[in-house]
Design a protein around this nucleic acid. Structure first.
Length: 532
RNA sequence: GGGGAGUUAGCUCAGUUGGUUAGAGCAGCGGACUCAUAAUCCGUCGGUCACGGGUUCAAGGCCCGUACUCCCCA
């Protein structure tokens, strides 16, 4: 429901290459984008998150053939068997899911390409080079190695170790070279366009060295699984050119101007650092050529390292997200990767660390806090939220911490510093646990004259839980949903409707509300050797 | 060959523009407490900030070099 008076926040993830097997790297990108987007939604903004699948290209055509099926059927199967389930596994709340084989995409990619052709940014040329089918791109000599074994004497792709094919074709080229200066201007005028700084530095130095025009078509003689070049049906669009355009075709480019204008330019486009160049160089150049605004920010995040190495299926360290969620749940998955790793830097994953943080932070820190507070409200006040009396210094300190945690976390999200945001929120978890110990409600409960004080202490605790439900909802939506339901007892409506700002306010929980039951949010996990 | 990032307590990491005795969490050790998922709270142990030079009144932070790790480009 686009509303012009409400700020919009449009975020994107890269689209999954449909042939890949989902692993925690994919899930990591999705979760990060989802957390930031949910936070903006919780602020009351018109938040829209896009993800999807990239389904064109020679490799998919070949895989489909190897599986004795049509490429579209093959992609259908993978989307439904792998990618949609992945989003469910890690609790992603995307607003839309674009597939590059959908008419809304194909048709409007053609419009875009035609527009660039008409305005002279695309021209015909010829290209000769060594093509690697695995990479789906031409390789320079430096990318090639001498073949070994069966491929003795042939140049092979350094990545795939398979022979490259010598190809010469007439192609259409995008005048990327004309955008060197405009891109450099963009980077300097909008320093946050590429983040973090390390990524920005790489991009800037790359563009400073000059840009070559980019081949954006492939002859159908080779394969024809792609989008036709509209004025020349002997060519199809190069997969990357096709794929990048998903970010605008999904939101109405070419056919729904109102929707498109309400969301574009994107606020945040999250990518892994391996594909940063496509998103921070080629993509903005394409948009400039078409006269469209560039996204506010392209954020390149780091790799997940397993045992010190980049995780990949070929190194057999690829980990399927369900391996983690089956044992720990989706909330723990989301929390762990967001809290343990500085977003933007490489980070190491280990089962030991995951397990330790689950136990120490989620079960003992947060989950147990919820249990002890609700148990005391139940035991001492029959489950009714007590009335607070006059606040002492200790109470006011908690109120202030809730306010500060909210503001600090909000600032951190603005910088896409997800880890910092959670750390800020966690100060409230820790301080509440501390507050309870110091306030000793179980001692107060022993003497009737302390009844008022006991009520105040537990009201402060309950309000703290209310604030935490809101602040942690973007990260651990399932657990906070249960906690919210229990602590408000339905007195404050839906958690989704509670704004971030309300977490910084005090005294919102109605006195006399009946709390609900709460099962342990993060039950202890006995087996410590899971995940082999 | 060119460029970028990194190397800080057993582990994972913070350390703004250089400025008092280098921090956190976890793990370890000692204690307190019992509302709670044997949870919580307090205290404590622990670092020649990769190595070698240099600039400075002052460097984990700046400069030069070396080693190792990773990434991008050619």
């Amino acid at each position: 429901m686009p509303n012009s008076t409400v700020k919009s926040f449009y975020s994107t993830t890269p689209i999954f290459y449909v042939n890949d097997a989902p692993h925690i790297g994919h899930a990591y990108t999705e979760v990060a984008t989802d957390v930031v987007t949910r936070w903006h939604a919780q602020r009351g903004e018109n938040a829209f998150m896009l993800t999807g699948t990239d389904e064109h290209g020679e490799k998919i055509l070949r895989t489909a053939a190897a599986n004795k099926t049509e490429p579209k059927d093959w992609a259908d199967k993978l989307v439904h068997d792998s990618w949609l389930p992945l989003l469910d596994t890690i609790d992603i709340r995307n607003s839309d899911f674009i597939r590059t084989t959908e008419p809304r995409h194909e048709k409007n990619v053609q419009k875009f390409v035609q527009h660039l052709y008409d305005t002279g940014f695309i021209y015909q040329g010829s290209y000769e080079g060594n093509y690697c089918v695995g990479c789906e791109e031409y390789k320079t000599d430096a990318d090639l190695l001498d073949g070994e074994g069966a491929f003795e004497g042939q140049p092979v792709c350094a990545i795939h170790s398979k022979p490259v094919e010598k190809l010469k074709e007439t192609n259409y080229f995008f005048k990327l070279s004309e955008f060197q200066q405009p891109l450099l201007d963009l980077y300097s005028q909008e320093p946050d366009f590429v983040a973090p700084d390390s990524a920005r530095n790489e991009v800037v130095s790359f563009v400073r060295r000059g840009l070559d025009d980019l081949s954006i078509s492939r002859s159908k003689e080779k394969f024809d699984w792609g989008i036709d070049i509209p004025w020349d049906d002997s060519h199809i669009t190069y997969v990357w050119f096709d794929a990048l355009l998903n970010y605008i075709t999904a939101i109405g480019y070419g056919e729904d101007d109102e929707k498109f204008r309400s969301l574009w330019p994107a606020s945040l486009q999250v990518v892994g650092k391996d594909i940063l160049r496509f998103h921070a160089v080629i993509w903005p150049a394409m948009l400039m050529a078409a006269g469209l605004p560039t996204p506010k920010q392209v954020f390149g995040h780091g790799w997940l390292l397993v045992g010190g190495e980049k995780m990949s299926k070929s190194k057999l360290t690829g980990i399927a997200p369900e391996q983690i969620t089956d044992t720990f749940g989706s909330d723990a998955f989301r929390y762990y990767f967001m809290k343990a790793i500085a977003f933007g830097q490489d980070g190491s994953f280990s089962w030991e660390d995951l397990s330790a943080r689950y136990q120490a932070e989620l079960a003992n820190g947060f989950g147990n806090l919820a249990s002890r507070v609700l148990a005391m409200v139940g035991r001492y006040f029959d489950g009714f939220i007590p009335e607070p009396g006059e606040y002492t210094e200790a109470d006011l300190a908690i109120i202030e911490i809730a306010r500060k945690a909210t503001n600090d976390a909000d600032d951190a999200i603005e910088r896409v510093a997800i880890q910092d945001a959670i750390t800020s929120v966690w100060t409230l978890v820790d301080e509440l646990n501390n507050y309870i110990t110091v306030s000793e409600p179980w001692v107060l409960a022993k003497a009737e004259e302390n009844r008022a004080r006991l009520g105040t202490v537990l009201y402060v605790c309950a309000e703290g839980l209310r604030a935490l439900s809101v602040l942690l909802a973007p990260v651990i939506p399932k657990a906070t949903g249960k906690l919210w339901a229990a602590v408000t007892g339905g007195s404050l409506g839906a958690l989704d409707d509670a704004t971030i700002a309300s977490a910084a306010e005090w005294g919102i929980l109605p006195v006399g509300a009946k709390i609900g039951e709460l099962e342990p949010l993060f039950p202890r996990i006995e087996a410590e050797t899971e995940g082999q």
